[in-house]
Amino acid sequence: MTGLLNIVADPATFATVLRVMTPLLIAALGILISDRAGVFNLGMEGMMLTGALVGVLVSAWTGSAWLGLLAAVVAGGLMGALMAFAVNTLGANLIITGIAMNLAASSGTTLGLFFATGDKGMSGALKSGVMPSIDLPFVGDIPVIGPFLSGHNVLTYGALLAVPLVSLMMARTAFGLRIRAVGVDPKAAATVGISVKLIQLKALILSGVLGGMAGAYLSMGYVSWFAQDMTAGRGFIAIAIEVMGMGTAWGTLAATIVIAIAETLAITMQTLGLPNELMQMIPYVVPIVVLTIWTARGRAKRVALK
C-alpha cells in the first residue's frame, strides 16, 4: 500500500498523467468544435496520424520542431477542409467520410513514410525534432507543488490553455455562437443569414488543426519518432471523452483527467506485476461505464419529469 502511496505522491506520476492527457485533450477539444457545428469528426484518428507523420518529416527536413508543428497543424487543417468538401459539396455521408479519412490516413502515412525513408514501419533513421519542455520561472521554485507544475512539454501547457480558450470561443464570441446555432438547427441558422457550409468548413478546419497538433505531440513529445498506426485508437478514445464531456470544454477536461488517471494507473500497475493486457483495458472500459450511467440517469430524469 505504501508503494502505491509513493507512486501517487511522486511528481513523476503527475507528469505521466499530463503526458497521457495532452494528446487526448487536444483531440477531444477538436472533436468538440466539430460536434457542436453538427459535423462530428470521426476522422480525428486519421488527422492525428497525419499530423504525427508530417511533424516528424518536416522537422527532420528543416531541423526545426516548431516548423514541424506548423506543418502538422496545416496538414490537419487541410484534412478538415477535405472532410468539409466531401460532406457539404460531394454530399457524402458524414460518418462514412470519417471512416474513409481514417483509412486514407492509415494507408497514406505508411506510403508517405516509405517514400520519405524507404521504411514502412518506423521513422527511427530520421533526425526529427522534439517540442521543448518549459521550466516555468518562479512557479518551479515554489516548495512542494513547484515540481508538479513546472517542466512539462510546451504542448501540454498549450492543451491546458486551450480549454478556457475553446470555452470562451464557444460561449462568448460571434463565431462560437454561429457554430452552436448551426449545430442545433442548420435550417434556422440559414434563415438568419448564417452560411452553414462556411461555418462547418471553419469548424472542421479548426478541428483538424487541433488533430494535427495532437498528432505532432505524439511523435514529437510523447515519443520522438513516427511509427505505423502509432495513434493506436487515441482518436477514438478522444471521441468517447468528448461525448462523456457532454460537449463542453470544461466537461471534456474533466473526462480527459478521468481517462488519463485510468491509463496512468494501468501503466503504473503493470510495474507492480499485474497482467498488463488487463490493465490496458481500463481506459477503454471506463468510458463505456460512464456513458451508460450518464445516459441512464438522463433517461430516468426524463421519465420522472413526465
Binding site: 457524402a92 455521408n93 474513409a100 492509415s106 497514406g108 505508411t110
Partner: peptide
C-alpha cells in the same frame, strides 16, 4: 497500401449524393 487510398476515395465517391 495504395489500395487503402483507392478504397477510401471510392467510399466517398459512391456515397456522394
Amino acid at each position: 497500401e495504395v489500395v487503402g487510398l483507392i478504397t477510401a476515395a471510392i467510399m466517398l465517391a459512391v456515397t456522394a449524393t
